[in-house]
Computed example of a mutant assay.
Amino acid sequence: MSRKTTSPSEFINIKGIEYFRFEEDFMEDNIRCIPMVVRFKMDACGIKLKLSEWSKFNATERVKLALMSIDNAEVTERYHQYLIALITKYTDNTATKLAIDPAPAWANVQQIPEMLLEKSAEIELNLSLEQWKKLTDIQRFALLKLCRPGHENKNFPKAAVEFGLLN
């Protein structure tokens, strides 16, 4: 999933977007993958976006998806509707809905998920609860996405370094 592209993503220097350097390596079939900030918002609004759908959106629409707020139920619903409209516009498909987790593991700052502790041990990272608490929501979300079973995990160590958890 990491074929280098010559041009940086449209997200790299935009204020207001929590975009990570390790994401510049996210390529699949020569298509830049969906950034964590958008994946985070998709989970929050209950829509699964396929890479083939994402690749049809123009840069302005992709940046808007990264910038739009999901701070409360009203704006999260707006995000949900906007994403559905884009999927319909470009694919004529019905958006794939996801169940929204009412208590996602990344939101629990009182306990580090076991799956993350196991993955951290593989790279000799002794993640403390204090470090876990200091991460942003999207950083915790990203670490959990990067350590899931069946996921290509080579960006996990890069994320740990970028987030100041590993030298």
Rank of each mutant, 00 (worst) to 15 (best):
K4N: 10
N93H: 14
F20L: 10
S55Q: 08
L166G: 03
N108Q: 07
T76A: 14
V109A: 06
N58G: 05
F141E: 04
P104V: 05
K145A: 03
N153A: 12
A121V: 03
L144W: 09
E130M: 02
K15G: 09
Q110G: 10
E124G: 00
A73N: 08
L98Q: 13
H151F: 09
E130F: 04
V161R: 11
L146G: 03
P104D: 06
I138C: 01
E122D: 15
Q81I: 07
E130G: 00
A103C: 07
A66K: 09
M1A: 12
E114D: 09
A103M: 05
L98S: 10
E53D: 11
L146V: 03
E23M: 03
T5L: 14
Y79V: 02
L166Y: 11
A160Y: 01
D137Q: 08
V38I: 14
L143I: 03
D137T: 01
K41E: 00
E77C: 11
Q139D: 01
N93I: 04
F40Q: 09
M36I: 00
F22Y: 15
N153H: 07
R21D: 15
I84S: 11
T60D: 15
V161K: 12
L129G: 08
T91Y: 08
A105G: 06
I14C: 06
G16A: 08
F40A: 06
L86I: 04
L165R: 10
E162N: 01
K97G: 00
L67A: 01
K64Y: 06
M36H: 00
L125D: 02
I87A: 07
Y79P: 02
I100E: 05
I47W: 02
Y19M: 01
